[in-house]
Amino acid sequence: HNLTITQGKLFFHYNPKLCLSEIHKMEEVSGTKGRQERNDIALKTNGDQASCENELLKFSYIRTSFDKILLRWEPYWPPDFRDLLGFMLFYKEAPYQNVTEFDGQDACGSNSWTVVDIDPPLRSNDPKSQNHPGWLMRGLKPWTQYAIFVKTLVTFSDERRTYGAKSDIIYVQTDATNPSVPLDPISVSNSSSQIILKWKPPSDPNGNITHYLVFWERQAEDSELFELDYCLKGLKLPSRTWSPPFESEDSQKHNQSEYEDSAGECCSCPKTDSQILKELEESSFRKTFEDYLHNVVFVPRKTSSGTGAEDPRPSRKRRSLGDVGNVTVAVPTVAAFPNTSSTSVPTSPEEHRPFEKVVNKESLVISGLRHFTGYRIELQACNQDTPEERCSVAAYVSARTMPEAKADDIVGPVTHEIFENNVVHLMWQEPKEPNGLIVLYEVSYRRYGDEELHLCVSRKHFALERGCRLRGLSPGNYSVRIRATSLAGNGSWTEPTYFYVTDYLDVPSNIA
């Protein structure tokens, strides 16, 4: 807008934040220059609390790290170098490059900038070799853009010569660093050979998330399962459950009422301010606690030095998902009996873990797994792929695949051998790939016309006998059925096997 004052003059007093240069501009645009008398524009009460600059400061050096910015700028000295009290560095987070010096300023003089007072450097006698002032900004957020400017702080001049310097606002972004852990990993099994893994992005990506790394490792069953005799009275049979499938998407929606109208769909109840505040506090606490764990609990591995020492970490090797089922080394339970199943799973520490690289999504279907087997899954978020990966501390989750139908069934015939004193040795093959492992066998036998009897055969007993022995049988026709019990439950009964026990007292003698 054009402003013209045809008559009258300007009068400025007691404006401590208004620089004289701005008042002189007002004289020019209003056409009143030359009308004012000496005392109409006070030299001592206008701009006496402001830094009124008329020179431009330029930054000469900028260096960044993930949490620091090192700045240096060209030296500046007023005509009387004693008038320079120091520099004021202003900075704040700036997602967009549209910041002005006066953003967030209120009537009390406060604003949204963080201000650092910096002492002037030592003055050199040689004007050509003056030290460049600077400042190291610490405690910054990774991968965050900051708006920065600097200006001088000078003393009051009796001659009211307006001098000083100020830089333009520059924008500097800190470097990326390792992201925080992925949030809320959930693993479920939808079949006997697959596990579905879902997660949420890290709360602090500290860069642009480029991919996720998912490692999985087959877990050995508890050692007590191999040692305890679950045929003993009072000892509860062990059981394991597989990871249940995901709930429906509708039930997972946030901010939804727990109660549904019987007449149909209901609208979600909005969260109160107290609920939102509580969630923010919980989120802040979780982030602080995660940072504490990362800094205190997890110790970084030592990389190899120039002395030739090897990095103890196993090298990563990509495998196809079809090879995942046989990740671990199978060892027989008892070496003397080769027909026992290889369900003991000690994992070799030198073995390469299978892994998958996930790009542009937060889910993965891990296939080719062994049925009813526990897996430990390790999830890392990465925001750099080359020249070397920059990934987060791992988040861990466990899951067990679903049982395989008929995996616990005894394959092959049940054979028998009759000894003296009416002892019958029953023999059968253990299931080759049971659900988890076989903890015991149930032997059901009966003599024709009598009630059915049951015998429990422990895992250890089966390994020693290759089956079991029935003792003290009365003469007669017998039928026997056997079924295995694994961590997933009972298998199917075998087809009945028949044998006849004679009275050993009636056996004919070869003595003449």
Rank of each mutant, 00 (worst) to 15 (best):
E417C: 02
V297F: 12
T288S: 04
S262D: 13
P338F: 11
G322Y: 09
F226V: 12
S509W: 14
S458Y: 14
S492N: 02
N383W: 01
L321P: 11
G472W: 05
H352N: 15
R459Y: 09
E227R: 09
N422I: 03
Y292E: 14
F285G: 03
S474H: 12
I418N: 13
G467N: 02
N339G: 09
D450V: 12
K361M: 13
N383L: 11
V345R: 10
I410L: 09
E265K: 12
P403E: 04
L470W: 03
K233D: 04
V299I: 04
R481C: 06
A488M: 05
N255D: 10
Q384M: 12
S341V: 11
S283W: 05
F246M: 15
D229P: 12
P434S: 08
L487Q: 11
S243G: 10
D261R: 07
L470D: 01
V414P: 06
E310P: 05
L455F: 08
E224P: 10
K278M: 09
A335S: 10
K317N: 06
S492K: 02
T497R: 12
D273K: 09
W216Y: 15
G412N: 11
S305M: 08
A330K: 02
E249R: 08
L440T: 12
H294Y: 13
G264Y: 14
V327E: 12
D503W: 13
T241L: 09
G412F: 10
V424Q: 02
K406M: 06
L237H: 02
L470M: 08
F289S: 06
D250F: 14
W216M: 09
W216S: 02
T272R: 08
K357A: 15
E350L: 07
G436F: 11
Y259I: 02
R469A: 07
A381G: 01
C269W: 13
W428L: 00
R286H: 07
G436E: 04
T485G: 02
K287A: 09
F499M: 14
Y500C: 13
E356A: 10
N295S: 10
T494R: 02
G472M: 08
V414M: 05
R483K: 09
C267F: 14
L228K: 04
F226G: 03
D273T: 05
V397I: 01
R313S: 07
E247G: 06
K357G: 09
V480L: 07
R483S: 07
G436A: 14
D503M: 10
A463F: 09
L455M: 12
E351S: 14
E420N: 15
R483A: 05
G234C: 07
T401V: 07
L453G: 08
S283Q: 08
G308Y: 06
L321N: 09
G374K: 11
N208G: 05
E260R: 14
S486E: 00
W216H: 08
R390T: 05
N206R: 15
T415L: 14
T494Y: 02
V397F: 05
Y445D: 00
S342I: 05
Y478D: 00
T272S: 13
H294M: 13
P270C: 02
D385I: 08
F355D: 03
G207Q: 01
Y441S: 01
N490D: 03
H425C: 04
H454T: 04
G234L: 10
A394R: 13
H254I: 14
G306A: 06
P300S: 07
C266Y: 06
D311R: 04
R471Y: 15
L369H: 01
Q384E: 12
E279I: 10
F337K: 08
S363L: 10
V359R: 12
Y498H: 04
V393G: 02
L235C: 11
R318S: 11
E388M: 06
N208K: 15
G264I: 10
S248E: 01
S486D: 01
S251H: 12
I418V: 10
N383Q: 10
I482L: 09
E221F: 12
V439D: 05
K406R: 08
N490Y: 13
V414Y: 01
D250V: 04
G207R: 01
V411C: 02
N421D: 14
T328K: 12
F372M: 06
R459G: 09
E310K: 02
P338T: 11
R318W: 15
S251M: 11
K287G: 07
L225A: 06
L379S: 03
Q252S: 12
S344Y: 10
Y375T: 02
T343D: 07
S305D: 15
N477I: 05
C266M: 04
F215W: 01
A395W: 11
P508I: 08
D273Y: 05
P238Q: 14
T401N: 01
N360Y: 08
H294N: 04
P245M: 15
L232G: 11
K287Y: 12
C266H: 01
A463L: 12
L225D: 05
E388L: 12
E351M: 10
S392E: 01
S305L: 10
P475W: 12
E356V: 13
E417H: 02
D273A: 12
G412W: 13
D503A: 13
F462H: 11
E221N: 11
E224H: 06
L379A: 08
F419V: 05
R240H: 09
G234V: 08
L321D: 02
P332C: 07
A381E: 00
A335G: 09
V414S: 02
T485V: 05
D229Y: 15
R319I: 12
F499R: 00
T494S: 07
S243E: 05
H454Q: 09
N435L: 00
T502M: 09
P387N: 03
V345Y: 12
E260N: 14
S348W: 14
F372V: 01
S268D: 10
S479T: 11
V507M: 12
S474W: 12
S458K: 13
V365W: 11
T373S: 07
H211L: 10
S239R: 07
L235R: 11
G436Y: 02
E356H: 10
D385C: 05
V296L: 05
C391K: 06
E282L: 14
P475G: 06
E442L: 09
T386I: 11
G476V: 01
G476Y: 00
Y375H: 07
D291G: 15
S203F: 12
S341I: 05
K406S: 08
N206T: 13
A463Y: 05
E279H: 04
N435W: 02
L225M: 10
H425D: 06
L237T: 06
V214K: 00
Q275T: 12
G308T: 11
C456K: 02
R318A: 13
W493V: 01
F499W: 03
V397S: 08
R459H: 13
E389K: 12
G476W: 00
P338M: 14
V359N: 08
G476Q: 00
V359K: 12
V423R: 12
R313D: 01
P300F: 10
L237Q: 09
S283K: 15
T303H: 07
S283H: 15
V457N: 09
T386K: 15
E420A: 09
E310W: 09
E249P: 07
Y500G: 07
T210A: 03
I276Y: 09
R447L: 14
R301F: 04
N326R: 13
T415P: 02
R471L: 05
E362H: 12
E362N: 06
E388F: 15
Q256I: 12
Y445R: 02
K278V: 15
H416I: 10
E465F: 13
E356G: 12
S223D: 15
S274R: 11
N422Q: 13
T415Y: 13
V411L: 13
F246E: 07
Y478F: 08
H416R: 10
P300M: 14
K287S: 06
D261P: 10
K236R: 08
E404S: 06
A395V: 11
L437E: 10
N383I: 14
K357P: 07
S315E: 11
Y259Q: 05
S342H: 11
E258M: 03
E362R: 10
T307G: 03
T340E: 12
C391M: 04
V297N: 07
R481E: 10
V359E: 04
C391Q: 01
Y396S: 11
L379G: 00
V480Q: 10
E404H: 08
Q256Y: 08
P496S: 08
H425G: 08
N339D: 12
S248P: 13
K317L: 10
Y292M: 11
C266T: 14
N255T: 07
S239M: 03
V214E: 00
Y500H: 10
E260C: 13
N208D: 15
L455R: 05
K406I: 11
N422P: 02
F246Y: 08
C269V: 08
P349R: 15
F372A: 08
D385G: 12
E310S: 06
H294K: 14
F298A: 11
D450Q: 12
N326K: 15
V358F: 14
R316Y: 02
T340M: 14
A407F: 13
E433C: 03
G368M: 07
A309L: 11
F372R: 07
T502L: 11
S492Y: 06
L321R: 08
S268V: 11
G368K: 04
T288V: 11
S479R: 07
G449W: 02
G264R: 12
S474M: 11
W242L: 14
S223W: 05
L487A: 12
